[in-house]
Amino acid sequence: MVSLREIFSKTDDETIAAKETGSPSDGKKTLKELKVGDTAQIVGFLKQNETVQKIEAMGLRPGKKIRITQKLGRGILVKTNNSRIVITSDVAKNIEVK
């Protein structure tokens, strides 16, 4: 059974990621590492796939300025221009930012 404390705490993804690699993606900073309130600019994507195609169409493109407005569990709320987009951390770790 999942305890309430466990639910409010860190997600599986975070614990898995912490175990998997000490330094994520050869020194490149990804969106996943940003904290609530941080602003950054998207540099590019580490891998190309369908999801990248979709989030690009939604407005998360290289060159775009973004701001992290909230993080809940694996979800990250990103604001760019006038849109607010929720992506999960597995998507965020594919987005390089500076």
Binding site: K54, R74, L77, S83, R84, I85, V86, I87, D90, V91
Partner: peptide
């Protein structure tokens, strides 16, 4: 699977 969604105003 991952999650991508827009939040409307």
């Amino acid at each position: 699977s991952h999650f991508v969604m827009e939040l409307p105003p």
